[in-house]
């Protein structure tokens, strides 16, 4: 329902890895960096491609922290005006990957970044980290009301590391703010058999109905996913959590 950056900014904005991307397996968080690079190379114009190639070479050669601001951090900041808004997320993820940014570096550039840079850091997390060191960035993004940040926070890294309570609140926040649940990585696996999530969804549906407001269609979808695995698809409208009706 929510489509961050819904209006194509440029004719080439149909790229599936730009900010217009849905959680349909095509966000920069879900595409391996090599494939992401090929995708961008095919779509950037000559000047932008040359800029990106040089930025990636510099990031590889001078990763780490140098002086007051490392050259790869400067390239990260200017990626939007160099590559265009439709390709900025992907370009930034590639720069972070080329610089081998670790948890400390990712934390620094996130908190020193614009909203666009912060979103790119969130997309880069699953490519660069295995541990939960950057979980505070996901938690920070989930505290914002910027739907573009919330959508990026519920990507694969958040799915891997958010605890049950924080994850349930993230799902509910997506429903509250209109972020499509397609954006939530690993939704079916994490929702399966989650009775507490089902209760929260049911209560939310009841609150909406009591106010005479529509219940988001996504709510019914995720409510169905909370059924225990063995029972999925076998229960009908007698769902005890189906208070939204």
């Amino acid at each position: 329902m929510n489509r961050p950056h819904a209006t194509p900014a440029t004719p080439e904005a149909d790229t599936p890895v730009g900010p217009a991307a849905h959680g349909d397996g095509t966000t920069p968080a879900l595409i391996p960096p090599a494939a992401l690079h090929r995708h961008l190379t095919d779509r950037l114009d000559g000047a932008a491609r040359a800029w990106l190639d040089q930025a990636l070479d510099e990031a590889t050669a001078h990763s780490g922290t140098h002086g007051p601001i490392s050259v790869w951090e400067l390239r990260l900041a200017e990626a939007g005006r160099r590559c265009g808004p439709a390709h900025a997320d992907a370009a930034r993820v590639l720069i972070l990957h080329a610089a081998h940014a670790d948890a400390d570096a990712l934390t620094r550039v996130y908190f020193q970044g614009t909203a666009d840079e912060r979103r790119a850091v969130l997309h880069a997390l699953p490519h660069l980290l295995t541990g939960a060191d950057a979980l505070p960035l996901v938690e920070d993004a989930l505290r914002t009301n910027d739907t573009r940040l919330v959508a990026a926070a519920v990507g694969p890294y958040g799915a891997r590391h958010l605890d049950a309570h924080a994850w349930r609140h993230a799902v509910l926040k997506c429903l509250f703010t209109g972020v499509a649940l397609d954006q939530v990585a690993d939704l079916a696996r994490r929702a399966r058999g989650d009775g507490e999530l089902a209760r929260m969804l049911g209560d939310y549906a009841e609150e909406r109905s009591a106010a005479g407001r529509p219940v988001p269609a996504d709510l019914h979808r995720v409510l169905a996913l909370t059924e225990p695995a063995t029972l999925t698809g076998t229960r009908g409208t007698d769902d005890p959590h189906g208070k939204e009706s």
């Binding site: 440029t10 009301n145 739907t147 703010t177 209109g178």
Partner: peptide, 22 residues
């Protein structure tokens, strides 16, 4: 060299946590 006048308009959000407040 940084002005960009096209707007990426996120669709409305609803209830509670968004600035549109329902």
């Amino acid at each position: 060299g940084r002005l960009r006048l096209d707007v990426d308009t996120p669709e409305p959000t609803h209830e509670g946590n968004s600035i549109l407040r329902g």
